[in-house]
Design a protein around this nucleic acid. Structure first.
Length: 587
DNA sequence: CTGACTTGCGCC
DNA sequence: AAAGGGCGCAAGTCAG
């Protein structure tokens, strides 16, 4: 079984574009100095790659999004790569990489390199800034930085997992998420009525609109305009200062139910209506672009069609092909488990032995109820200081001093303007804004949540407030203190969310390998393959007769990811797994 | 008219 | 059900 961070020698082949139609392949045995250079027409690349894949090899290239889609389109799947763009991004931010070893005239070019997201799998876009960069030289710099790193093994694992994630991302776009347009159309018709002419409201929305306008005596009201809606509600005597659904639900007024229904259906129409289907679903597949490392914490981002939020409402349209099934798996309470593992807290790991970590905390005597455990842990990881989660902190701190101490220290470090890092060494971005340039003033230091109990400074009016963390933060002393605390909440969450993302990457990378070896012969989309990934959840599309075997591999990959990150520390990552014909049939 | 910002809401 | 962290997207709003 090929492990993610395997150390066995694997030959590396650096691929370089030479002009518009030639590829240079520079091959070097992992344990030898010799380099063999081959030049071939770009059109011959898929055949070359397929041939060299017959024995273990790691392809080194500037950026997976610039190479792999065309290979996949030609039916060629690879086992391993070294994605220089993603690895560069990790190393440049890592506190465990000597930046001097990465420095070069071309470093700004690598810093600025963006993935390509065109649906067009044509090789070699014209005038690509990547073509001014030297992959072999960058590869050498990255290897030197790794070799000199005090956290070499962890960084190597991170880079391997990140690169494998890049392969998964391209493969998921290539395969697409099975999507039944007929089912989706039926769903829209049932909820909204027949498809209207362009620019017209669907019948159900039109009827709800007249109801709302009548109820609030506002004939011209457009509920899609927050300002206009707010004025209409206030004119009707309702005490509101925003128009969020949750706010409206609290109100007693005969027009509210129709308004809430309007908002819900309007959202469906805008986000996943007929035009969404026209744009994003073709050939029975929803294809969006996944961007590994697209979020600073290491989570993935996605482009196109809102793949990060496929609403429960439309999941009935996600249906496996005839004779195929979905294996849907997600990790229960990933982030608190990761926190237990990072801090090596035996007591919390004991709770995490339970399939429900929060219930385990109750059994361990830390808190009285599951709800308290959940709200308390979320507050610890997100920085909640007020309300119920704030009140839980002293109890959690007493019971789990090292775990709470870890996130508290991450918050304090962020408030001091320092960089924090994940378990495998991904660094947080340096703080931005004027607040970070100034020393912490007297009386400006934010109160500790766990140490002092309820914070006493700067709470004040709170107002509409919450200007973005990234804004410049110049201004009053209170403004700077607020920014400082907001950045502390970010770094607090960074260490947990980022390490959770690393666990998920290792899970995904391992699962990718396992699925390939399950399927026997055939191309990627003829074997069990990943079609969706979201933070802590995967969908595998598999021939029905292999579904049970896929379930086993999904579980084994999760256990392996836990060992890769936390070694022998006894922390469990139990999965909720379902074998279904439609995503809607989960739970 | 375009582009930047705000609001609200879907997902984890 | 919110609070606290991370996103993407669509529509409305407003300045240039």
């Amino acid at each position: 079984m090929p492990a993610i961070g395997e150390t066995a020698p694997v030959n590396r082949i650096v691929l370089v574009r030479r002009g518009g139609s030639t590829v240079e392949a520079r091959e070097r045995a992992d344990d030898g100095p010799g380099v063999r250079v081959a030049r071939l027409p770009a059109a011959d690349l898929p055949g070359f790659v397929a041939e060299r894949e017959r024995s273990p090899v790691r392809w080194v290239w500037d950026d997976t999004t610039r190479w792999y889609p065309a290979l996949l389109a030609a039916g060629v799947r690879i086992g391993r790569c070294w994605d220089l763009r993603l690895s560069h991004a990790v190393l440049r931010r890592s506190p465990f990489a000597d930046q001097a070893l990465l420095a070069d005239d071309q470093t700004p070019g690598w810093d600025a390199l963006q993935p390509v997201t065109t649906a067009d799998p044509a090789l070699f876009p014209l005038a690509d800034p990547a073509d001014r960069l030297d992959p072999a030289a960058e590869h050498a710099r990255q290897q030197a930085a790794l070799a000199a790193s005090p956290a070499r093994a962890r960084l190597e694992l991170l880079l391997a997992a990140e690169s494998s994630g890049a392969l998964v991302a391209a493969e998921m776009t290539s395969a697409g998420l099975p999507w039944r347009v007929d089912v989706h159309h039926r769903l829209l018709r049932e909820l909204l009525g027949p498809r209207p002419a362009p620019g017209r409201r669907p019948a159900v929305l039109a009827r709800l609109l007249t109801d709302v306008q009548a109820a609030f005596a506002a004939p011209g009201l457009n509920p899609d305009s927050p300002g206009g809606l707010l004025r209409a509600l206030q004119a009707a005597g309702l005490p509101v200062d925003d128009t969020r659904s949750w706010t409206l639900e609290q109100l007693e007024h005969p027009g509210i139910p129709a308004l809430l229904e309007y908002k819900k259906l309007s959202r469906l129409l805008q986000a996943n209506g007929w035009s969404w289907l026209d744009t994003w679903v073709s050939g029975g597949r929803f294809r969006s672009t996944f961007l590994p490392g697209g979020v600073v914490t290491g989570r993935w981002a996605a482009n196109g069609g809102g793949a990060l939020s496929v609403p429960v409402q439309v999941r009935p349209a996600v249906v496996a092909d005839d004779g195929w099934r979905f294996v849907v798996a997600d990790v229960a309470q990933l982030e608190p488990r990761v926190l237990a593992g990072m801090s090596g807290v035996a007591a919390m790991a004991e709770a995490a032995r339970s399939s429900d970590l929060y219930q385990g905390m109750v059994a361990g005597g830390a808190v009285a109820t599951r709800a308290e455990a959940k709200v308390g842990m979320l507050g610890a990881m997100y920085g909640g200081t007020r309300g119920q989660s704030g009140r839980m902190m002293p109890r959690l701190t007493r019971r789990y001093p090292r775990a709470i101490g870890l996130v508290e220290e991450a918050a304090r470090a962020g408030e001091r303007g320092e960089v924090v890092h994940t378990l495998l060494g991904r660094g947080s971005p340096p703080p931005t804004g004027a607040w970070a340039d100034r020393p912490v003033g007297l009386g400006e230091h934010p109160d500790g949540v766990g140490s002092d109990g309820v914070g006493s400074d700067g709470v004040g009016s709170d107002g509409v407030g919450s200007d973005g963390v990234g804004s410049d933060g110049a201004g009053s002393r209170e403004d700077r203190a607020r920014h400082r605390r907001a950045w502390g909440r970010f770094t607090r969450n960074f260490v947990v969310q980022g390490t959770g993302a690393e666990w998920a990457l290792c899970w995904l990378a391992g699962l990718r390998n396992r699925l390939w070896h399950l399927g026997g012969a055939g191309t990627l989309d003829q074997r069990p393959h990943l079609v969706f990934f979201l933070h802590d959840e995967v969908l595998v599309h598999t021939p029905a007769h292999l579904a049970d075997a896929v379930v086993e591999e999904v579980r084994s990959a999760a256990a392996e990811a836990g060992r890769l990150l936390f070694g022998g520390f006894p922390i469990d990552f139990p999965l909720d797994v379902a074998v279904v014909g439609s995503w809607a049939d989960v739970d």
